[in-house]
Write a protein that binds this DNA or RNA. Structure first.
Lengths: 102, 102
DNA sequence: CCTATTTATGGTGGTATTGCCATAAATGCA
DNA sequence: TGCATTTATGGCAATACCACCATAAATAGG
């Protein structure tokens, strides 16, 4: 069961819309907290905590340059995750349509 | 942002150790609620609710046969998810070792 | 018909998550 | 030094999640 707790901890870090947005953005290039705060549109402290969650899970890494902190994606396996999610969403949509059409 | 909420809903369904155990078990073959309750080792009502969460997310499907309900995996994309999680866990372990060794 | 089995659901208490505010710490610049 | 900028953290209230208990509903068997 220990094994599944470790896995669930990663999934939990992925289980928030703002964090998914952040992750996908960081996949393109690194960003400062200020930039990510503008992107997400929440309080700076809120974004900082989201970043902390992603970091604890080992999904992102940071690089300090003077007073600003640049975050970047640490792992290279996210495409598998995105694909899985998108597949499920497509299936669900298809089922919904089928249910309505009947 | 709507798009990320839909994605996060799927990730949320994956963000619990019991649900991950259930999913991985169902990948092999369909199971009844009783079987899954024994497997997880929680209350039957708890397992039933976990299954409801997985179903709402579109991750599992059910088939009723008399009084028993058989659940089965509905999507075929989970391997991408497992691989991503495992990769992250391996990376984290490696980093931990490196941090201790220094 | 009565009973046992199987599953789902309402209720409840405890815990965790989330968001914002205020603020501290660190850095850079005039 | 004084001040602005950038992040991180503690505090707190609202919400969501989770586990169990009790129980209802449906079916199968005697």
């Amino acid at each position: 069961m220990r094994r599944y707790e470790a896995r669930a901890a990663i999934a939990k870090a992925l289980a928030h819309p703002s964090r998914l947005l952040i992750l996908e953005t960081l996949e393109k290039k690194e960003r400062s907290v200020t930039e990510l705060t503008d992107l997400v549109g929440a309080d700076q402290s809120t974004v900082s905590k989201h970043l902390s969650v992603l970091r604890q899970a080992g999904l992102v890494d940071l690089r300090k340059e003077g007073v600003t902190t640049f975050y970047r994606v640490k792992v290279c396996c996210l495409s598998g995750f995105w694909q899985c999610i998108e597949t499920v969403l497509r299936e669900n949509l298809k089922d919904q349509r089928a249910a309505i059409g009947r």
